[in-house]
Design a protein around this nucleic acid. Sequence first.
RNA 1: CGGAGUUUAGCGCAGCUUGGUAGCGCGCCUGCCUUGGGAGCAGGAGGUCGCAGGUUCGAAUCCUGUAACUCCGACCA
Length: 482
Amino acid sequence: MAQEKEFVRAITPQSEDFSRWYIDTITKADLMDYAPVRGCIVFKPDGYELWEAIQHELDRRFKETGHRNAYFPLFIPESFFEKEKEHVEGFNPELPWVTEVGGEKLEERLAVRPTSETVIGYMYSQWIQSYRDLPVLINQWANVVRWEKRTLPFLRTSEFLWQEGHTAHATKEEAVEETMKMLDVYTEFVESVLSIPVIKGQKTPSEKFPGAVATYSIEAMMKDGRALQAGTSHYLGENFAESFNIQFLDKDNERKYVHTTSWGMSTRILGALIMVHGDDRGLQLPPKIAPIQVMVIPIGPQKTRDRVLPAAQDLVSALRNANIRVKMDDREDYSPGWKFNEYEMRGIPVRLELGPRDLDAEQVTIVRRDTGEKLTAPIDLAAKKVAELLNEIQQNMYDRAVAFKNDRSRSANNIEELETIVRTEHGFALAGWCGDDACEAKVKEVTGATSRNIPFSPPEHMDTCVNCGKPAKHTVWFARAY
RNA sequence: CGGAGUUUAGCGCAGCUUGGUAGCGCGCCUGCCUUGGGAGCAGGAGGUCGCAGGUUCGAAUCCUGUAACUCCGACCA
């Protein structure tokens, strides 16, 4: 539609080229910029503020579940990586090394951390003596580096920001419970705060974290039908405890290895936020995470400003008193129409327009970002109305994302069907799997889709392996993934 | 890491085939004017053409190399 295009001429439509849309949107919305180093980005203030909001919400949940924050070093001695074979093999291709300082070679090379299991494991071995020292429940907010061959802003960058939780427990049962608890924390956060529905499940052995006994994930569907792993939680068993000799003396006077867990969520989640909710006008932020929830735009010629501006200021105060994150744009050198488009592009959930006509009617015009709907409310009830509306938008965005995901998900009885689903219909395919790595690899080779996870509650159970036709051990979600 | 494409003003692009004084739109600055879906007029600033070599009297343009970005593949919690 020509008029539609006119509003957003700076952004490539999603239907034309989803990748271009994504890059256009994050650039125009001023979330990031490319850095001079390959594969690295700058989080500009508007992008970093979103991350701060995510940090704030997650950190509160971690603390409510008994965790405390700490910070471990960026550099990890080479010898640490050699202690856990699977771990070193998993990360070796993407590790950068510090080999010399001031022109002199180091005795031992230092890796820039890709994740901190090893250095934290080493420290835990020093700190833990007795069952009375357990559990250890620590989280770290940090940057990590993985030298990726192919990068994409927020989704896969050479350096990224994340949190990594690392816990140590006396028993397997307790550690497994922790692993699941944190997966639930992620799920609750992503679904209720980011309005993104996820699929909870277990990773197949080929997709699990190097060094883990079991990896669990939450998977989300982007608007192009591709999957994005939104968070992971690992039960590491005694693997790292054995490698780093993390032992404790139990009540029965026996020396035992601890059971460890780790769990992480990264700035990649910003990519999900953008690709789940964004549309051809740009970003669309769920109210609970939006740094600015409401933008007030006073309207009218010079001669009415004396009347409009104080009223608009009162409106801002009323909303602020109702704990709504509100800002006013009263710049005179931008037209109202320009501002409408600008803040829609930036994803602000609600816009309030206040002009002479509104004042005459003692009302304010309210516009929803999610539906584009225009409403009015009496000025003195605006704060109450907007608060209700923000909740409604939050829910509507979630419902819409659920409907989209369900619409694009269905079961596949054979590999051809699976390929149609992921390549032509651009969706998720539910399929049986015999448990053989070779069958999983074959699906990837033929269809381009990888196993996302073995869902805890699949919509149906599949009987036969999608590749070899033998009885299925598991029902698995397959999708093309970021 | 392989294949393809791109790189010229803050952004988007033309100019390159056929070598000869650096262009357009938007944005930016000044002034006037203007405000309910990206207003208008006038004047103005801004670029060693990604980088390094080479060919040539002369290179944005031709050749070689290199870097970054985008897409497709390989690899990848």
